[in-house]
Design a protein around this nucleic acid. Sequence first.
DNA 1: AATGAATGAGCCTTCATTCAT
DNA 2: TATGAATGAAGGCTCATTCAT
Lengths: 203, 203, 203, 203
Amino acid sequence: MTETGPSRIQSEKRAAILGAALEVFAAEGFRGATLDRIAGEAGLSKPNLLYYFPSKEEVHEALLSGLLDLWLAPLRRIDPDGEPMAELLGYVRRKLALSRSHPRESRLFANEILQGAPRIGPTLSGALRDLVEEKAQAIAAWAETGAIAPVDPRHLIISVWALTQHYADFDVQVRAVLGRDDPLDGAEAHLEMLFERLLAPRA
Amino acid sequence: MTETGPSRIQSEKRAAILGAALEVFAAEGFRGATLDRIAGEAGLSKPNLLYYFPSKEEVHEALLSGLLDLWLAPLRRIDPDGEPMAELLGYVRRKLALSRSHPRESRLFANEILQGAPRIGPTLSGALRDLVEEKAQAIAAWAETGAIAPVDPRHLIISVWALTQHYADFDVQVRAVLGRDDPLDGAEAHLEMLFERLLAPRA
Amino acid sequence: MTETGPSRIQSEKRAAILGAALEVFAAEGFRGATLDRIAGEAGLSKPNLLYYFPSKEEVHEALLSGLLDLWLAPLRRIDPDGEPMAELLGYVRRKLALSRSHPRESRLFANEILQGAPRIGPTLSGALRDLVEEKAQAIAAWAETGAIAPVDPRHLIISVWALTQHYADFDVQVRAVLGRDDPLDGAEAHLEMLFERLLAPRA
Amino acid sequence: MTETGPSRIQSEKRAAILGAALEVFAAEGFRGATLDRIAGEAGLSKPNLLYYFPSKEEVHEALLSGLLDLWLAPLRRIDPDGEPMAELLGYVRRKLALSRSHPRESRLFANEILQGAPRIGPTLSGALRDLVEEKAQAIAAWAETGAIAPVDPRHLIISVWALTQHYADFDVQVRAVLGRDDPLDGAEAHLEMLFERLLAPRA
DNA sequence: AATGAATGAGCCTTCATTCAT
DNA sequence: TATGAATGAAGGCTCATTCAT
């Protein structure tokens, strides 16, 4: 009757650990991160951390497992039956917003890919590829009707990824160029213009 | 006459070490790389490696120190007195070519930035920023004359970086989407079109 | 009237723990055994186990303390006034039966002795030695009357131990030689013959 | 031309480590033994030990790998064409001598078997079983000619193992019974008599 | 110029034990 | 009684670095 799921303290601690781990893994990479630092930042001892997760590897996996879903959500929301230009610019906006609200997730992902995707490689060739293929067909259809300019849909999607994530992943460099306190509003305007011009059908 | 600089064997070994180190650092990150692996791939013993470089840190630094120069060369070649459109598209082409011919350097750089640029941070705010500022002014001047569309020059440069480097740094992901054997020629065409449309002055 | 000794549940749990501990200590040795495994096999939690026994050490000791009594029972039953040959062969039979019915106890004991008897050393030099001495005199007396062949009684007893326990302690090796499914009946016949011939008085 | 095998210092250190490891593994079992103690007893640091052997497991294996050969040497020397009684009694004598000169090896072996032979199990069912089978046939042949009493040859061999090894493995207990300073000469006489009577053909 | 040998510091993980409930 | 949570101490192993040759 009283099926008890993970107790409150369980979920709170697990959440605290994952938060700290996200911070550390994103900043230092998998090998660079130490359980000591993660535990410290989560406010518990190292063996206590291992009471909640069986190993460093599994903490990392717990972070990655949800990540791709989060990451692809903006793409998933593209509606083949919507208004093409609005759908695509909306996608760009959502993806940029996500990158800016979740920079640590972005860097965690970047780290994983940079190292050759040892852990989520299969998912890339599976779920990711499938989703891209699906959306690419919608975009291609739009291009054929002349609603948008003819572009390679897959490279278009890759461009969105590259441009939006760069602001999160290469933040230090961006800041060095733009100045410490730039609100990055220029980025949004710039990307919007960029994709508008790229996609605008010829007059 | 008998002033002896570094003997040939010296420089050869140093070069071999740096080559191996580039491979390993790019693939595994700084902490993930081990001197053992670098030494092994360079074909010498670990203590011998440390005879040529005093520490792991310094091997890494030796790689990074030359890197920014290489990395900024395409940008540097933009000629304020040249034909605007040709200059900028030439820049894009050169930068993409560089990323594709030097993917390991690209990843090494990406790793460093992702970790917060602990080693080349100062250079970013110095030399890098200065160069960008200089070229940005030239681009801004072009925009004012109407030779190109009005764009934020700094975000333009950032876009070039993002789009070109992405193909090197996120290779695994790109391959997952495009297929293992895609020659990536589509990337070049796509980027050229992208920047052409972005920069083309209004009719 | 209401003096309450250990409640039934108390003794039942203690018994369950000791049963599981016997299994685990016999199979893995003292250091190899973990409270986790013992608790798991006893069907309770680790802290709960430590509610019944204050420490791993004491679980082990509880097992050992009763063990020597059990182990020496067959020897104790030798009757100085009985028929010599029957008494001794009966002893051999009882000891072999015990080893076969209690292989885990045998291995627990073997482990303890192998490690130098850190816990029951004193008992060996005390109770064990005394009992052996007592029975040795009886055997010596039999030898003097010519009822059995003249043998060193202490080495005789040691031989019984060695031969009977070996079948329990070295079971894997015995099985490797005799085959997985040998019922070990041959052992009984063999040992009986061995001691019969050893002890039969000269014609 | 100058094919160099392991340098002298290599073999010396390896030998020292194996010596110390034999001591510790025999006394504490695999899990009970610590690299710290082995290294300490061998006179070097723990990482230095791991410079010579890649892991604790491999130190252990290095000890075990040669052990069975040593252990079976006495059995192997039984000559089917020799004088039966002399061959068998010689075997007993050699095996007892070996157990007494190599008590640590004996205990190392006992530990391994007690734990279920996790590492040399296959060898037991292979090389060991084959050798026993071979010698058992020779013994059976002797029994058939009447040169020795009819005994189960495999149980005979097991008896030799049990009786000889017991003096090494259960040394503490034997000493508790016989006295700290007994030279154990009685053991030799006893075993000789035991097997003589067991094997002597009926008059 | 090169390498075998050595080590201190640190890392991930295990485990007996304690604490709070 | 019973257990979820926590921890200190240790254990095996890695690795950058040093030393001696």
